[in-house]
Amino acid sequence: MLNTKELKDLFEKINKAISKNKDTQAFNAYLQQHPDVVAEYRDIDKFKKKVWVKVFDIYQAELHDLLEYYDKAQNDLKQLRDKAKSETTDWNRALDLFKKRFFVPFSIEPANQEDVILNLDLPSFKYIFEDNRGSKEVSKEDLLDVLSTGEKRAYYILNLIFQILVAQKMGEKNLLF
């Protein structure tokens, strides 16, 4: 029975696959020395679970330290984000100054203030159009499409106020100060 052509072809195919490269040759040598591992492959999911349990058991102290470090980092990040939310940005100062001087049917709010303060992202804004029917968040392009010429000028003045405040903060000299 061991001399049948089908069985010889199957053994030849297995031998060819095992001898394919250094990794499979090393794996074959390991299996030759540890035949008990072959039995584990009957239920591969159970075998994987055993391996992971052993790995976690061996590295339990390191995993515990890693989880403590992760929790501390998450707490630190939360505190930084809370502090960033409470800080007034240059954009908020520009908005406050603008609101004191202009009455327009729109408002602009920072969308990612804490990420900007933490230097994680560039600023992005929410544009809110307001009329007698209520308020609605719109895209910048849609907002500029519905504004009158005077309202558009006010919008551009808002951007100018922001740029001036940033330049002042950086100590840059310009024509205005």
Rank of each mutant, 00 (worst) to 15 (best):
M1R: 08
L2N: 05
E6N: 06
D9L: 02
L10H: 04
F11V: 04
E12M: 03
N15M: 06
K16Y: 08
K16N: 05
I18W: 05
D23V: 03
A26P: 00
F27S: 13
F27M: 09
F27R: 07
N28A: 11
Y30M: 07
Y30C: 05
Q32G: 03
Q32T: 13
Q32H: 08
P35N: 10
V38H: 03
A39W: 05
E40V: 08
R42F: 00
D43P: 00
I44D: 07
F47R: 14
K48Y: 13
K50Y: 14
K50H: 15
V51N: 13
W52Y: 13
W52C: 08
F56R: 03
F56I: 04
D57F: 11
Y59C: 04
Q60C: 02
Q60R: 09
Q60T: 01
A61P: 05
H64L: 10
H64P: 01
D65A: 05
Y70Q: 15
Y70I: 06
K72L: 04
K72D: 14
N75W: 14
D76R: 07
D76L: 08
Q79M: 12
L80R: 12
L80D: 14
R81A: 06
K83H: 00
K85N: 15
S86I: 13
S86M: 09
S86K: 15
E87D: 12
T88H: 01
T89D: 02
W91F: 09
R101Q: 12
P105K: 03
I108C: 02
P110E: 15
P110W: 05
V116T: 07
I117Y: 11
L118M: 14
N119W: 02
D121W: 04
F125R: 01
K126T: 10
R133W: 12
R133I: 14
R133C: 10
S135E: 15
E137I: 11
S139Q: 05
K140P: 00
E141N: 12
E141S: 12
L144G: 01
D145C: 04
T149I: 15
Y155R: 02
Y156F: 08
I157Q: 02
I157K: 02
L158V: 00
I161V: 11
I161K: 01
F162M: 05
L175V: 07
